Simulated assay, not measured.
Amino acid sequence: MTKLDATLNRLVEEARTAPASAEIAARALPLLDLTSLNDDDTDERIAALCDRAVTEAGGVAAVCIYPRFVPLAKQRLSNKGVAIATVINFPAGGTDAAAVSADTKAAVRAGADEIDVVLPWRTFQSGERTIPHDVLRACRDACGDGVLMKVILETGGLDDAGLIEQASRDAISAGADFIKTSTGKLNPAATLEAAAIMMAVIRDCGRPVGFKAAGGIRDTAGAAGYLYLSNVLLGPGWATPSTFRFGASGLLDALLADLGQTTTGRKPSGGY
């Protein structure tokens, strides 16, 4: 990745050493989008994922699943205070705005509360701006009122500080409620460097926008660095479920262990 400016680089280095603790685990748990996005997901696996979403230590923010499982998750988590998130044009970041609109409308009708849509990042990387904007606007319009749009930038593919900054700004301009690092299908996934750039854009954008780190965050120590960046760049009280998410599959059990809770023992076989 292109070198960060000196201030962000210093913050990233500090974030790498942010200590893990039970307090950090307690902060991170309600920020979790508990995720299973495997090609071989089944009703049984998604039902088990939903059953894991409410623990003795509290509930997660959302479950994130493929659209075909939205009705099942909606039924399974009825009145549990856990949102249903799903993915559109995932993971490749398709450029067909009409298809994105239709798929988003179908997911919302099925009960999705949140839509994670992929910026057509390869097209964006090539220098094209109209097509990515049109795709995101189609999703935003199809979401309607009350449904969150989280835009996945696929920062590991962009792999350039300037491109990540511009993609963040363009996603926000197109109506993003959250900007999200990664699909979890490409390496590197979430990085502290990308997170610092994205949070700095959020800080300066002039309206409330959330941040989601997704992919490769597996323990409390991994979560601690992102929370440190949010504290410094956006304020100690900024990271709440309405502004900050971790997209992960295995992180929940690690957080519960650090909170002294019995772990669920039923991790998805993949996802994030």
Results as ranks from 00 to 15, higher is better:
228 Y>K: 08
148 L>I: 14
14 E>F: 00
74 K>H: 10
231 N>E: 15
72 L>C: 09
167 A>R: 06
52 R>K: 09
105 K>A: 15
51 D>E: 15
183 T>S: 14
263 T>F: 12
167 A>H: 07
35 T>A: 11
47 A>T: 14
172 I>Q: 01
3 K>C: 09
123 T>P: 09
229 L>I: 00
18 A>Y: 03
254 A>W: 07
217 I>Q: 04
137 R>D: 02
221 A>D: 07
31 L>G: 07
74 K>E: 12
124 F>T: 00
191 T>E: 08
158 L>M: 06
99 A>H: 11
13 E>S: 12
211 F>Q: 03
200 A>H: 09
247 G>Q: 10
80 K>L: 10
62 A>T: 08
46 I>E: 06
78 S>T: 06
190 A>P: 11
63 V>I: 14
76 R>S: 14
190 A>R: 05
148 L>S: 14
137 R>G: 04
223 A>W: 07
176 A>G: 07
233 L>C: 05
130 T>V: 00
221 A>M: 07
112 A>I: 00
61 A>F: 06
57 A>E: 12
231 N>R: 06
59 G>F: 00
39 D>K: 15
6 A>M: 04
189 A>M: 14
98 A>W: 01
49 L>N: 09
199 M>N: 01
270 G>V: 01
185 K>P: 11
233 L>R: 00
186 L>H: 14
167 A>Q: 08
163 L>D: 04
192 L>I: 03
73 A>F: 04
229 L>E: 03
116 D>T: 06
70 V>N: 11
20 A>S: 15
26 A>H: 05
194 A>V: 03
38 N>D: 14
134 D>H: 01
229 L>W: 07
172 I>L: 04
70 V>K: 11
71 P>E: 08
122 R>L: 02
194 A>C: 09
135 V>F: 03
177 D>A: 07
26 A>Q: 13
247 G>S: 10
269 S>C: 00
125 Q>D: 10
94 G>Y: 11
239 A>S: 13
81 G>F: 09
145 D>Q: 12
134 D>P: 01
111 G>K: 01
191 T>H: 03
205 C>H: 09
2 T>C: 01
6 A>Q: 12
193 E>A: 12
45 R>V: 10
109 R>Q: 13
114 E>F: 08
200 A>E: 14
122 R>A: 01
225 G>K: 05
198 M>N: 04
94 G>L: 10
207 R>A: 05
101 S>V: 02
49 L>M: 07
242 S>C: 02
115 I>D: 05
205 C>V: 13
19 P>L: 02
149 M>S: 06
35 T>K: 12
22 A>E: 15
254 A>N: 12
28 A>D: 06
76 R>T: 13
190 A>G: 06
39 D>S: 14
148 L>D: 11
152 I>L: 05
22 A>G: 15
243 T>K: 11
246 F>A: 12
